[in-house]
C-alpha cells in the first residue's frame, strides 16, 4: 500500500494527494496527519486534491474526519484545488462536505490560514513562541 507524504512548511502541514487512493491509504493518511499535528504543533493543514480526478463519498468522509480531528488538535484544515468536475459530481452525489474549509489553490489556502490565525490573535498580544522559521521536512 502506498502512503501519502506529509510535508511541514513553517506552521503548516502540506499534503498533496497524487495517487488514486485505496480506502486503506486514506485511513492511513488520517492517522499520519493526527500524529504529525501533535508531533509538530502545527496550526494549519492544507490538503491539495488538484490531482484527484474523483472524490467519492469515502474520500469525502475521510476529508471531513481529518478536518474534525485537526480542529480538536487546534489545527485548521483547508482542502485546496478541487477540480470543477469533481465539485459538480459531489453536488450531484449530495455530499456538501460541511465543516471543511476550501480554497482554489495552495496559495489562497495559505492566505486563508494566515488570515484565520491573524484574526484570532489580533486582539491578543502576539507573543507566540512558535518558531516561525520555515522548516521544510519531508516525512
Amino acid at each position: 500500500m502506498e502512503r501519502v507524504p506529509v510535508l511541514k512548511i513553517g506552521d503548516i502541514l502540506l499534503v498533496s494527494i497524487q495517487i488514486d487512493m485505496e480506502d486503506q491509504t486514506a485511513l492511513q493518511l488520517q492517522e499520519d496527519l493526527a500524529d504529525r499535528i501533535v508531533e509538530t504543533g502545527c496550526h494549519g493543514v492544507i490538503i491539495d486534491i488538484s490531482a484527484l480526478d474523483i472524490v467519492d463519498s469515502f474520500v469525502g468522509r475521510t476529508l471531513a474526519t481529518i478536518a474534525s480531528i485537526s480542529r480538536v488538535l487546534d489545527a485548521e484544515t483547508v482542502v485546496v484545488g478541487m477540480r470543477p468536475a469533481v465539485a459538480i459530481t459531489l453536488v450531484e452525489l449530495g455530499l456538501s462536505l460541511p465543516g471543511i474549509r476550501t480554497a482554489l489553490n495552495v496559495e489562497l489556502g495559505m492566505a486563508l490560514l494566515a488570515r484565520e490565525r491573524d484574526f484570532e490573535f489580533k486582539d491578543i498580544d502576539d507573543d507566540e513562541d512558535d518558531a516561525d522559521e520555515a522548516v521544510v521536512a519531508a516525512s
Partner: peptide, 12 residues
Amino acid sequence: LKTVVAARLMGA
C-alpha cells in the same frame, strides 16, 4: 444553486 454549492466546495 448547484453552481453556487459547487463553487463553494472549490473554495469560491
